[in-house]
Design a protein around this nucleic acid. Sequence first.
RNA 1: GGGCAGUUGGCCGAGUGGCCAAUGGCAGCAGACUGUAAAUCUGCCGGACUUAGUCCUACGCAGGUUCGAAUCCUGCACUGCCCA
Length: 407
Amino acid sequence: MFPPVDEQMARIRRGVAAIEPEAELRQKLERSLKTGKPLRVKYGIDPTGIDVHLGHTVPLRKLREFQQMGHQAVLIIGNYTALVGDPSGRDKTRERLTPEQVEANARDYLKQVAKVIDIQKTEVAFNGEWFSKFRFLDVLSLTSKITVQRMLERDDFTNRLKKGTPIYLHECLYPLMQGHDSVEVRADIELGGSEQLFSLMVGRDLQREAGQEPQVCITLPILRGLDGVRRMGKSLGNYIGVGESAYDMFAKTMSIPDELMREWFELLTDLPAERIAELIDWQKLHPRQAKEVLGKEIVKFYYGIKEADAAADEFRKRFSEKHDPTEVESVDVPSADLTDGAMWIGELLCRMQLAKSKNEARRLVEQGAITIGDKREKINDPKANVNVVDGLVVRRGSRQVKRVRLV
RNA sequence: GGGCAGUUGGCCGAGUGGCCAAUGGCAGCAGACUGUAAAUCUGCCGGACUUAGUCCUACGCAGGUUCGAAUCCUGCACUGCCCA
């Protein structure tokens, strides 16, 4: 039923930051192989935003790996923890969400997460199921399990203390809540980003207190975003969402710094280590080529091989050959608003949402960013009136292209 | 509860009565260059007016002093530090 323990260990080890403690993991695997009982692998997410991005898929892919080896994935939707806000890796208190927002997000999350893991075979639990029944005494007993000193020794809090940014008391509850989730679902293993280690370890303590065998904590590296420096994150705008189009995924991947490729290959594809080593050997292969393989692998995971090839072709056309994209968004322009078939360029750019304001439109024109029509006629005069015909293509810089639809 | 300090544009951070739509950095946008949407260099980066100019809105909130306030005064809110 399960692969041999050594094989499982090897597959689990790939691309992880830490396994704490590794010996216990082996024991658990051996026992599960003997008894035929799958391990319960917990992964929790807080429905705080709406975009699941590749950074989130790193632990999710590991969860998928466990599923493929026959273990039981347990997904915790932190609808209650989301009300608190995870302080991990934060230098500020998170904004608190309303219960309605959290619920809407949760539904959306599941849909997105299903792109990575087999949601049919996943046990999904909302931690509100138990936390909504918590009485104050329960809170007291939970909070008596950890000292203020231990709480404050975490990096995030230490930094905030040093910098004088506020730390609210409720934020200290977060790791305890996450840890308690492990008790409720009797987790054997918990996955998380490497900044989660503290919270994961709290789970071990609480399980031990509750007379359970403590979970093994497996942390995964934090994926760096498109800039190659900071962690991939929504607020940093350096991410690829799992819901993005095949083309966008591909094009964004092509924009990452070369040095980032090894990390992405390892954390975001299933390619074997030897193959990755070949790909990132610049002596043998041009980085551009390698990056194309990477982009295709990523797109393939979500859209299949055909879409991946199509995205790569489209990219080549647009960049190497500087063509307009195959599909250009159309914007309706009422012909009644034209005078003698023409419109002031500033007005036109605003209408087409290629400029936020007429001032911006003027600047763009002055900087030579605007071209129109198939012949790519450059507009240089901010006062220009341009003839507007149906299907007119308007370009802002090299990336933003829209088409007029006269109505 | 008391004392002290702070709150400036998407963020960080200068400015301490007119020269301020506000120095600088980051982020963003555009141009050149490039395998690249990277790096680098250049320009832009509140809004309206088809703009060398004029006007409007903005420096936590509400009032006040002044010919004139981001800058001074009062009150309020929020945050930090110290004392209890």
